[in-house]
Design a protein around this nucleic acid. Structure first.
Lengths: 210, 210, 210, 210
DNA sequence: GATGAATGAGGGTTCATTCAT
DNA sequence: CATGAATGAACCCTCATTCAT
């Protein structure tokens, strides 16, 4: 990669990092291009040197986030031989990922609709959906490994189980985030403990003996 | 309640009904005060006679939605003697409720942060959280009934189990909504079938024999 | 017309008058909504209360201008029994009209392309073209009257002759406007004299005996 | 001219050629400096090495266009001994020129105001007006030749006749351009036929026997 | 109380121009 | 000299909110 390309990549990265912070804080909708420019310490016009539109910024964040998530999940899955330990690693990876990329995570789990497509941009969403798909495939394979190892049983097609698990966990993570103080007060639990219980509960749904 | 108060209540109701329809269709963000005024057949300024701000309208809808949800759940719980049948009724009530009040449902499950609080508004949120709490209490009681009947066992405090279940279901419902066509294509399932599988899966997590 | 409608009409008129002044001075392209708001002494947002877009303002000016022009031409044609005197009246009406509605005149003669159509706006242009057409018909009828009276002969279909005459005059008027000082200096002629000579010359092209 | 100057001239020419193509296609207003840079295959900043502003580019094009037009007209005039044939050649040259240099042509005929003068730029306009003047002189001389040959008679000073003719033709050409499809539909004429009729009509105004 | 009217404060996007290298 | 990079200033448009009647 030439020096020029590297620099461009650097600036794109700075902008995306700034946008990511703001999106995590206020959501994509309430974050303005002005906000991003200020946070990234560029002029607003400069953003348009590196991205064609706000939509492209959003999609870029979603995509890079998804790619990162995919890698993290792959690592988590490969990190442990024991299926149950791997399961814990996967859940931990997901939670950590959410902390750092909530916007991307929401897109990954379908908790938010993808940015409204302006025709010329459909490629952006297509890439996102493709990676999203790959993640599901990877998780489905992991699930099958659990089945083969006798660790879990599932009554549904693996992909469906994965999607259900995935979206259920997404809901739990959301609540843990938005209602953290409420959980603390009512249940006397930290967010981490609450999430651990959640992942346990979901694990039970996979290992049921009924 | 005086005649005057009754009239005021009537107008507030009309406005809220209109707003609710629009929020369900386009979300709170993309619904403008103009839209609401038009739908409710009032002048836009009149909206401000009955509500201090758009935020108050949103909160009022969330609140009334929660109250409605609470009643629906109560009815569902009471409708069946058999716990498992009641469980199905509860799940069905929730799904139906989401179809008609997605905004309120999201607030109820903590899937979205409550409207940004402008200080003077915290009362609005407080009411919402109170009803949210009452719903959880009701569900917790229902869960306990299941435990007593030997239908389910749970390793966690009932309230926590309810919250986890609740938020997990919320995530599943979201995905079913936003990815409906994807689910159709990939899994060959209708949204209803997918949701039924989801509620079954979550039920398994409550009845586990591990 | 109700009082309300009358007031609305008044405001629309004020805005259009302001826009017309600015369009005449700087053209439609270089006139901004801010300019119009300032000139009309409304806030910019208010413009959007009375018109949906800049395009609608432009089209409204073009349309009302065309309607006015049509009436003026009709009056001029009817004002004189003698065809040649009527011809002079027509030319004078056109010149005067241009002084007050240059933008509309340009649109009428096809000297400028109509505003780029944003689909939903095509009705606006359609109306303009229709009136433009009616004007041509009226002028064609007037031309035929001249032919019948033996005043003019024309080798081409009346409509074509009208269009050619019309656009030729348009060109002459333009030059008289933009090069007024040059004409004054070089030819020692006032704009009016120059235009009179122009209309004479064009008349010759209609009465040729070749 | 030094080698350096020659090189500068070469670059200016490349830029102007690119700008000319784009102006003809989209007009000066809708052509951006970015467009020109891309078309000329220079960096945008380089444009500012050879021209002080967009305005200077426009004026330079107008000027070179006028110079070219002058030469074309000269050639057309000299190409034929018969005055009427020369007249046709002149008209054809004008129409062709318009096709390739509409912007320059509009400036030449005074159909558009010259670029808004930013004081320091008045020299640019002065040159344009000078060539414009020379063209008029040449056409006036051609007209006189026609008078001497008995081909035409004119009641007005030659220069004035030329200006009138010139601007009338300009109007006709414009309409033929902007209303091409309308002419096709209504008159069943191609743009070329319509223009031929127009030049005939204008010729009649010069040869009148009244 | 009901509302027509008005608007301040942005929102995303574009573009001619500048300047350090 | 040539340019990559950056941006100030606009541009058209939207919307929650206010206020006189």
């Amino acid at each position: 990669m030439s020096k020029k390309q590297a620099l461009t990549e650097f600036h794109r990265g700075s902008i995306l990092a700034a946008a990511e912070r703001l999106f995590a804080e206020k959501g994509t909708e309430k974050t303005t291009m002005d906000d991003i420019a200020r946070e990234a310490e560029y002029s607003k016009a400069t953003l348009y040197v590196y991205f064609q539109s706000k939509e492209e910024i959003i999609n870029a964040i979603l995509l890079s986030g998804m790619v990162l998530l995919k890698r993290k999940l792959h690592e988590a899955i490969e990190s442990q031989n024991d299926w149950f330990q791997a399961y814990d690693a996967v859940c931990q990876a997901i939670v950590r990922f959410y902390d750092e990329n909530p916007t991307a995570y929401d897109a990954a789990t379908g908790a938010i609709p993808l940015a409204p497509q302006s025709d010329s941009m459909q490629k952006g969403t297509a890439d996102i959906l493709r990676v999203s798909d790959e993640i599901e495939q990877e998780l489905a394979a992991f699930l099958m490994r659990g089945v083969e190892a006798g660790a879990v049983r599932t009554k549904l097609p693996p992909i469906e189980t994965v999607m259900l698990f995935w979206s259920a966990l997404s809901g739990i993570i959301h609540t843990a985030e938005y209602r953290e103080s409420y959980i603390q007060r009512t249940l006397q639990l930290t967010r981490e403990e609450y999430l651990r219980h959640g992942t346990r509960m979901l694990l039970d749904s996979l290992t049921t003996h009924n």
